[in-house]
Every structure is written in C-alpha cells, then in structure tokens.
C-alpha cells in the first residue's frame, strides 16, 4: 500500500516540471469554493485551487452570418490541484480533509449561443484527520479512565467527475458553477476500508478579468 501511495505522490510531483514545457499560454490558477456533503447530507465546505500544467486548444471558425464568423473552442487541460475540506458528521465526528488532485479538464462551447461547458475527471490523494465529537475515554488502570483527544488519521484517495458551465450574469470575471460527485476510500477503517460517496457543488474562478471571446 505504501509503495503504491509513494508512487502516486511521486507521479504527481514529477508531472509538474516535465509538462511545463508543453504550455502554450500561461493559464491562471483557478480558485474554488464549494459546498461539500459527505454522503450528501453531512455538511461541509471546500476551498481549493487548481493549476493547469498542460493545455491544448482547438479552435474552429464557423460562419455566423454573411459578414461574421464565430469561433468554436475546445480546450483540453491537465491540472494539478490542492484543496482543504471540512465536514461535520452530526453526533459522530468532524472531518478535515487535505487533498491533492490530478485531473483532466475539457472546456468547450458547442455554438455561438452556448456558454462554455466544462467537464473534469480525476483522482485525488487525500489525508483525512477526523476529530471525534463528544468525550473520548481510554481505560487507565482498574475501574479508571482518562479523557483523551479522540480522533484519528486516514489515507483517503478519491475518484471524481465534475460538470460545470460559465455563469453569464457575472460579467467582470470568468466564474463557473459546477457539481462534482466523488467516491472516496477511507483507509484504514476498522480492520478494512470504508467507501464514502460525497457531493460537491460550488463556484470556480481564476479571478481575472474576462476577455471578450466572441
């Protein structure tokens, strides 16, 4: 397990300098803020950033009318990201999840009328720190107990896909909304591993001023 984990971490780290040479433009980091629901209903919040280290853009010119053309754009990116998530499982624990993500991101518009649509898929390597709610006791000799800081750590890899679209009503900057179902695996959990299904819904933006695209 540790060998696989080390390999994945190295892979994530190695991809950054190697792919830096492939860049055509300089994409800005994207900041994300989202609602995070562990099993949908255990509420939380997520803050993250993603940076494209490789990008490929395809543009196709299409006639809009006799004088004008419009451009269909398709962008493929490889991104690396980091995030911090907090969630609250009532009557059980609070979870603090630190995650590194490697993802493929596709952006495209299908016609001059449609806004940019986004699709992402990727994997994450996470570290979960959970803090038990209530009071935790440990036996301390005959009929005696000591109060301890109850909690634990776990490795939490994840798989995810996300769908999003740019918001039209925010003109000043590129902002997109997205929804992102995730499957995560908490290892160890008791004597094995436990699956988590989570749902993320939020906003993502590079916080730069919008250029006119058409």
């Amino acid at each position: 397990m540790y060998q696989v984990l080390s390999f994945l971490v190295l892979l994530l780290l190695c991809t950054v300098p190697a792919s830096g040479q492939k860049k055509r433009s300089t994409p800005k980091p994207e900041f994300r803020i989202a609602y995070f629901g562990d099993y949908l209903a255990r509420p939380g919040a997520k803050l993250g950033v993603a940076y494209a280290f490789a990008q490929k853009t395809k543009e196709k010119s299409k006639p809009l009318n006799r004088e004008e053309n419009y451009i269909l754009t398709k962008i493929h990116r490889l991104e690396i990201g980091g995030s911090f998530t907090f969630y609250h499982h009532p009557g059980d624990h609070n979870g603090y999840l630190f995650n590194a993500e490697l993802l493929w991101h596709r952006i495209r518009n299908r016609s001059y009328k449609t806004r940019y649509r986004h699709f992402e898929a990727g994997i994450g390597l996470g570290y979960l720190r959970y803090q038990l709610l209530g009071t935790t006791f440990k036996p301390d000799g005959e009929s005696s107990f000591k109060e301890i800081n109850g909690g634990g750590n776990a490795f939490m890899p994840s798989l995810f896909a996300a769908w999003g679209m740019n918001l039209r009503f925010i003109k000043a900057t590129d902002v997109r909304c997205y929804v992102k179902p995730l499957v995560m695996f908490e290892i160890p959990y008791g004597a094995g591993a436990r699956g988590h299904f989570a749902f993320e819904a939020g906003l993502s933006s590079s916080l730069t001023k919008t250029k006119k695209s058409r």
Binding site: G91, D92, L132, L133, G134, T135, T136, F137, K138, G150
Partner: peptide
C-alpha cells in the same frame, strides 16, 4: 444526550 467514545485495543466505540 451525551456522546461518549471508548477507545480500547485500537477500536473507537461510540456510546450514546
């Protein structure tokens, strides 16, 4: 409503 956890031999067991 008092949530307790008992930690023993690696297990963290809730007692509500």
């Amino acid at each position: 409503s008092d949530l307790l956890w008992l930690e023993n031999k690696g297990a963290q067991m809730p007692i509500l």
